[in-house]
Design a protein around this nucleic acid. Structure first.
Length: 257
DNA sequence: ATGGTTGCTTAGCAA
């Protein structure tokens, strides 16, 4: 089973790119983030024509996540369902071929100390609580998405410069470590231990991509039974090239399940 | 040195 995660930065702006990506990489499951579209305008039919059914948690203008799959998605759950009043569409999960897959769009946090920053930290805690309520580390599960946190120095082109920011602040990293501490393996890093300069996001500004000034903030976090079945993981850098790319590249992993 | 880019929605916000 080939699982991909990709922050599209608008599914309308990336419509043709997404269809070309599906044809090229032929993933079995794709978790998408930042749809930036209302449910009614989500291109469900075009994706169905391409062979994918869609689980969609959308909202107007901001956020929005989806799970595309070739096989049927069951036990669909939209949102964290934790009783918190929260209009932001950042989470969806479903079971596909016996694997629980979740599409995750963690808050960016904007600036350390801001309201959005505290929302980010709280949201990470809520996600950990969701795991505790809904899953067991012994089951096959993969959290796929834009976590807006780079875990380690190796995941940041200039760690000292990024440490004061929400994407690499020690508290954000601790929140991500709390999440993985429940029982999740960074599937991409497990296949590329110690390998530097591998990023999934580059700022549109300041020639971020041409200079490879990136961060690895998009992750496939798998429980041990699933991580053991991972045979390959890579970042599809080509998707960041060319005309009108997203600022994120897809992360893809192959699992023998 | 506080720059610069993109998308959604239409001037300002979010990333």
């Amino acid at each position: 089973m080939r699982i991909a995660t990709w922050n599209l930065n608008s599914i309308r702006a990336r419509h043709d790119r997404l269809l070309a990506f599906l044809a090229r990489q032929k993933p079995d499951v794709v978790c998408l983030q930042e749809l930036k579209v209302v449910e009614e305008r989500f291109p469900r039919q075009a994706l169905a024509d391409a062979g994918y059914q869609s689980v969609v948690n959308a909202q107007k203008t901001y956020n929005g996540v989806a799970i595309l799959s070739r096989e049927e998605a069951t036990d669909v759950r939209l949102g964290l369902s934790d009783g918190v009043e929260d209009p932001q569409a950042r989470f969806a999960s479903a079971v596909i071929l016996g694997v629980r897959v979740a599409s995750v769009y963690a808050p960016n946090g904007q600036a350390v100390g801001s309201d959005k920053w505290f929302y980010k930290l709280a949201w990470m805690k809520r996600l950990r609580a969701w795991l505790e309520r809904n899953c067991k580390p012994e089951e096959k599960l993969c959290l796929c998405g834009d976590f807006n946190v780079a875990p380690e120095p190796i995941d940041v082109h200039d760690p000292a410069a990024w440490e004061p920011t929400t994407l690499y602040h020690p508290e954000a990293r601790a929140a991500l470590a709390e999440l993985t501490g429940w029982g999740l393996v960074d599937a991409f890093r497990a296949k590329h231990p110690g390998e530097p300069n591998l990023y999934s996001w580059w700022d549109y500004r300041m020639l971020g991509f041409p200079k490879n000034r990136g961060l690895r903030i998009d992750h496939l976090l798998a429980t041990a039974p699933l991580a053991r079945a991972c045979t390959e993981a890579f970042i599809d850098r080509d998707e960041r090239k060319g005309k009108e790319p997203s600022d994120h590249a897809p992360v893809i992993a192959e699992f023998e399940v």
